[in-house]
């Protein structure tokens, strides 16, 4: 961990949803780094460790380029947070070509999943690693057998499209040779999808994948915004405001985040990349809420 590099500029606070809702520096990357510099242990930081949504907005904001997500994941391994465990898929398959890792929420909507798979002309992986993602997020132990079984499935895959932004980040580490892209990027690259976006749409970028590859993706989305004249959930730093709906941490209220994303913005439809955001926005606006794959 490189927490010692933090010199306390507070830039990470500006984009942190936990900060926005609590105004308590102890619950932010800045607070954790400074506390560690002052001798705190993971146990001392339990509340802070449990509060992070892993949206990753702090990482591109950090001028010291501290790997803040790795830092919190390491702290969670030392101090796991309690959540229900996901099911371990029983099916075993070897994927080749293009594969979609749909994630828990999308899997629960077979119609939407089928539509997206058709749009992307892609096979849906039976084992999408949801349990692995959840274990990483919570700091739970991961068995090497399970990990190698999962990774073995994709050894011959050419392109992985991943709905879960946290899993995507780790897959890029684990499979450096593979082409791993987010579901949002994959869909928003399709001309058929782009053409259906309207200037009156509010487009909600999935933050975890976006921030994990911010330098590249900020150009991708900037081009999309300019081409379709979209409003988005990007802030002035071009960091994506998260709802936190996909997070295992429950400190952030997704409804409050969604209200902040909508605040002051004129729009007719909300178009989201993260399927978990559909339900959240539907509760705070009477306008149409669509997944990008529904267009």
């Amino acid at each position: 961990m490189e927490f010692s590099s933090c010199h306390g500029c507070s830039l990470c606070l500006l984009s942190c949803p936990v900060w926005r809702q609590t105004r308590d520096v102890r619950l932010t990357p800045h607070g954790r780094a400074k506390a560690l510099q002052n001798g705190a242990s993971a146990a001392d930081l339990q509340a802070s460790i449990a509060s992070c949504t892993l949206c990753g907005a702090c990482e591109p904001a950090c001028p010291e380029e501290i790997p803040l997500i790795d830092m919190i994941l390491e702290l969670r391994r030392q101090q796991p947070i309690q959540v229900a465990r996901g099911d371990v898929p029983s099916e075993k398959e070897i994927s080749v070509g293009n594969v979609l890792l749909a994630g828990e929420v999308l899997r629960q909507d077979p119609e939407r999943l089928k539509r997206i798979a058709s749009l992307l002309d892609i096979a849906v992986a039976a084992d999408d690693g949801s349990d692995i993602s959840r274990a990483i997020e919570c700091g739970a132990a991961l068995s090497s057998e399970r990990l190698s079984s999962f990774m073995g499935s994709f050894r011959n895959a050419k392109r992985l499209v991943v709905a879960d932004g946290l899993l995507l980040r780790k897959l890029r580490e684990w499979l450096p040779e593979a082409r791993v892209v987010s579901l949002g990027e994959a869909l928003s690259t399709l001309e058929a999808v782009r053409a259906r976006l309207r200037a009156t749409d509010l487009y909600v970028i999935e933050p975890r994948a976006f921030h994990a590859d911010h330098a590249r993706l900020v150009r991708h989305y900037d081009a999309l915004i300019k081409a379709r004249n979209l409003k988005t959930n990007l802030d002035l730093q071009r960091l994506a405001v998260p709802t936190g709906a996909s997070s295992a941490a429950k400190r952030v209220d997704p409804l409050d985040q969604a209200r902040w994303i909508l605040d002051g913005r004129a729009f007719e439809r909300v178009v989201v990349e993260d399927a978990a955001d559909c339900a959240v926005f539907a509760r705070v606006t009477d306008r149409q809420v669509l997944h990008l794959g529904d267009l």
Partner: peptide
């Protein structure tokens, strides 16, 4: 009053 917070 804990030291880590004060040290921040």
């Amino acid at each position: 009053e804990d030291a880590p917070m004060r040290g921040t």
